[in-house]
């Protein structure tokens, strides 16, 4: 067995992979938060709950309708995204003229309702969701064994993240979106239906969260608390990266996952707090965040 810095190689790479996987979820979730924040100016506290709903949606599709993983990966984001659009239309849109804090409070309340309802129905012990047959097993990479599903999560998350980035930074639709983020009334005066764009953006952000939820279902057990465990860390990630840049939130998400994984190897006691420590340091040195604009 070979050693790196006095740590057995497989252990190091194993934790790095786990870190990358967590990083993939951080990236997907903080990306959705950043897109929603940019246009709607609300911090979507319900993001964690919607992530959890994505995982449950996949589980329900399999349990009640016999629809497998691959279709769930497509269907769950659409279903939960539609639910998000419903929330935006009926509740969130009433708050745009008020202080942004009310948006935070509203979505916090929504998260409580959603998580409470799921806990009532399914308990908090968690439900198993099996890895799809085509991704079972592991591959020998020479320096470590990589479970196929975990590799797939990292790759899939990276593809979706960069597709979103390209959509926002490289297409006409994305240009409109960015313009509306800067100055919504001006874009509206050019004849763009901004309210509809806002609604669809919220739906898309929620869809990203649900997609992450489906990816997470086979790794973590599907349980009502899975979202709230993630969301606070994701907030820290967002503060570190700054919400100004799409690419920034992707890089920060993956990067912090890796930092967390490495901490698990070298100083396990600090692994749950390291991201918050990084946040404190970044606030001291660059208050606007690594990629943020004041």
């Amino acid at each position: 067995m070979f050693m790196i810095f006095g740590i057995p190689g497989p252990l190091l790479f194993g934790q790095l992979l786990l870190g990358l996987i967590n990083g993939a979820f951080y990236a997907l979730l903080s990306l959705g938060l950043a897109v929603i924040f940019g246009l709607l100016n609300i911090v979507n506290f319900a993001h964690g709950a919607l992530f959890m709903m994505g995982a449950f949606c996949a589980w329900m599709l399999l349990e009640y309708l016999g629809i497998g993983y691959w279709w769930s990966l497509l269907l769950a984001p659409i279903i939960i995204g539609a639910f998000g659009i419903l929330l935006e239309k009926t509740l969130i849109s009433r708050l745009y003229k008020l202080d942004h804090l009310y948006g935070l409070l509203l979505t916090f309340g929504l998260a409580m309702v959603i998580e409470g309802l799921f806990r009532n129905q399914y308990g908090s012990s968690g439900l198993p969701y099996r890895i799809p047959p085509s991704l079972q097993g592991a591959t020998d990479l020479g320096f470590m064994f990589m479970p196929n599903y975990r590799g797939w999560v990292v790759v899939a998350a990276a593809i979706v993240c960069f597709t979103t980035w390209a959509l926002i930074e490289r297409t006409r639709l994305g240009a409109l979106l960015r313009a509306a983020t800067e100055n919504a009334p001006l874009v509206q005066s050019f004849g763009v239906n901004v309210p509809r764009m806002v609604t669809l953006t919220y739906g898309a952000g929620v869809g990203l969260a649900a997609f992450a939820g489906v990816l997470a279902a086979p790794i973590y057990s599907v349980n009502p608390n899975m979202g709230s465990n993630f969301i606070i860390v994701v907030f820290a990630v967002v503060v570190i990266g700054g919400m100004g840049s799409i690419l920034g939130s992707i890089v920060t998400g993956f990067g912090l996952g890796v930092v967390e994984g490495l901490t698990k190897v070298f100083y396990p006691q600090a692994s749950s707090t390291v991201i918050f420590v990084v946040m404190a340091i970044v606030l001291l040195i660059r208050p606007a965040g690594l990629f943020g604009r004041i």
């Binding site: 929504l110 409470g116 009532n120």
Partner: peptide
């Protein structure tokens, strides 16, 4: 859990 649901609803 209905307490959580009620509290969330009061928030909303």
């Amino acid at each position: 859990s209905w307490v959580t649901v009620t509290q969330g609803a009061i928030f909303v």
